[in-house]
Design a protein around this nucleic acid. Structure first.
Lengths: 357, 357
DNA sequence: GCCAGAAATGAAAACGTGTTCATTCAAGGT
DNA sequence: ACCTTGAATGAACACGTTTTCATTTCTGGC
């Protein structure tokens, strides 16, 4: 029992013992005394075929362990039912959660995930793109944000981008292209407003924003919205601390902020993992209390955020909802390419736990 | 800049504006004044073709943005260059790290990862398998351990399993099949021995083993090796606490152990995430000190284990090394199907941090 | 019992590539 | 100058499916 995890498959020609090929539509047809076309139709629900005949074919197909060959099918259909995902770091909690949810949702719709690892610096590798192109994915999801849509969609033929934009649809007023395409609008300002209000309620005056990757649009918009929310409440602009979404960088940046810099009443991290780094630096190296001396707020609400050691107060982006909206957009555009551009909107909200108050 | 993450592709027939198909080998051939066969050969390094001719073809291919169509190619080659991965939980730190490393390694060898989400209960879904079969992956990696190899390799044609076994190759003495196939032997006992020795050195007498999924072979072998190591040092057998590799279950199980049960001097968790749950329960709910009152040891050494809040002492499985060995086995078997069965061995070692001593 | 329209059917033509096989070409040894 | 060997070449076929299109069979209304 439970003896294995890995399995290699081999084409018939190379296995001397097993001479049983994968069953083909022709074999099923012969066995069922019908034409090969009938077999094809049996597997296509809305093709016209006598019910009784269809049942018999499917029965025989099951006995022969037959499944239509996707490669052959996609050759004529021009649909591979593959969705390419380009990911720099599968280990990142937020990204792995998003991959998980996307794969689940797409799988339910009959699409399989084709996973590619991008370079660590988030850059888009032309070789990788060329390589991926060969598989002809029906759609591509890129988890890196530092490449122009035009470059990528020029590389992949007939690609129509779906924009993920933050807070202000108007920030793209100058780019006419943005309004021509489908968009997912994430209103980060909602949760950020709640967070800033809560912090101010606790008497916080000086907030440090622990930034993420500078190429990340999500990051720059988070920073902008925090600054805006603070201004609206009559607070001074936040102190900006450079970061890159990782624990280690956040840890060191926090040390610098409090040792070399002038510290802060609260640290607003650009993501939860960064918040963890900040908390650990404050508690375990600087000897400060969270939330006693310094409040900490994160962003994302990953599963680890409710772990008791951190118990993080954070701005939650509902992953399930986000993925549902994205999959809806992708499938809509795939089914009806000429439909009018659609915009989905996603709110965010503050989840209050133990690192504030 | 940095305005998008998602991209949908569409077959020509459905896009009214763009009428430019993907370039085909015929077009390249016509443009270069050669036969289509020459184009095929140009992309196959060990086919015989005049160097000058090959260069010209590749040049023109680049200009036309041409890449061989994998679907068409695999139809005749019987090789898809796809490796299917069946994963119950992509979010799990250890699994996501393994997916990341495997994808990187396989990508370097020209294989792409085809990701499928299995049911949450680790069970193998026949529908999923049938579905995956359609894509004809060259190889399959299953991250779930509760299905007989025979069942799966019967389902997928011409599948030859690669066994991952733990500590004793002899445990499969009764199963002749095990010695017929390739194997990765993980010597968990190495690191476990070091851990038990260290704990005994600190005067620990009563160890609780916080178990993982009972269907997991890795788990049962960890338990067996801990018991064995303790016996060899004249210690009483460990207290077994049921678990399932998750934080929440580990947290509650630890509470029960110390409130209802009789507690322990040390908790040996079946994985790092479980150790985190134990630590948090001890520190934040039971008011005990780690490592003062109770020592904690984990298993895996995931990236989070060095985070200061946990700073976990743990038995490290070298992920890179493990993945290298696995990829080596898979590729070897794929290239030379009739080669003699190979066994790779992997050691483990204790990484000492702050939760012991 | 007849006719129109709809549903069911199979032959043939794609889809884009790799491979076989017989042929041509170039080079090198006597 | 001749033969031999090996490399270079392209025509034809194969891979397993879907789709088109023309034909046949069924259905229901008069």
């Amino acid at each position: 029992m439970n003896t294995f995890s890995f399995l290699a498959l081999f084409p018939m020609s190379e296995r001397s013992e097993k001479r049983t090929m994968r069953a083909t539509a022709d074999q099923v047809a012969r066995e069922a005394n019908v034409s090969r076309v009938a077999v094809s139709r049996a597997f296509n629900p809305n093709a016209s075929l006598k019910q009784e005949k269809r049942d018999r074919i499917l029965q025989i197909a099951r006995e022969l362990n037959y499944t239509p060959d996707m490669a052959a099918r996609s050759l004529v259909t021009r649909r591979t039912h593959l969705v390419g995902m380009i990911v720099p770091d599968v280990c990142s909690p937020w990204e792995s959660a998003e991959i998980d949810a996307l794969t689940t949702a797409l799988q339910a719709e009959g699409f399989a995930t084709l996973l590619f690892k991008a370079k660590a610096d988030f850059s888009m590798d032309p070789t990788l793109l060329t390589y991926m192109r060969g598989f002809n994915p029906d759609s591509v999801i890129a988890f890196t944000e530092n490449i122009e849509p035009d470059v990528l969609s020029g590389f992949l033929d007939h690609a129509v981008p779906i924009y993920v934009i933050y807070d202000d649809a108007e920030q793209f007023a100058g780019k006419p292209s943005a309004s021509l395409y489908d968009r997912l609008l994430v209103r980060q300002s909602d949760g950020i407003g709640q967070a800033v209000a809560l912090l101010q309620g606790y008497g916080v005056r000086r907030i440090a924003y622990l930034a993420g990757k500078t190429q990340s649009l999500a990051n720059t918009e988070r920073q902008r919205m925090i600054t805006k929310a603070m201004a609206e409440r009559g607070m001074e602009p936040p102190v900006i601390v450079a970061g890159d979404y990782t624990y280690d960088t956040a840890y060191r940046a926090t040390l610098d902020l409090f040792r070399i810099g002038e510290g802060a009443d609260a640290v607003f991290a650009s993501n939860d993992v960064g918040a963890f780094g900040a908390i650990d630096a404050l508690r375990h190296e600087l000897g400060l209390s969270v939330p006693g001396d310094v409040k900490v707020v994160g962003f994302d609400d990953i599963p680890q955020s409710h772990w008791k050691s951190y118990n993080l107060t954070t701005v939650r982006i509902d992953l399930e909802e986000r993925v549902r909206a994205l999959v809806r957009l992708i499938l809509m555009r795939l089914k009806t390419p000429d439909a009018a551009p659609l915009t989905e909107t996603l709110s965010t909200r503050l989840v209050v736990r133990g690192t504030v108050g």
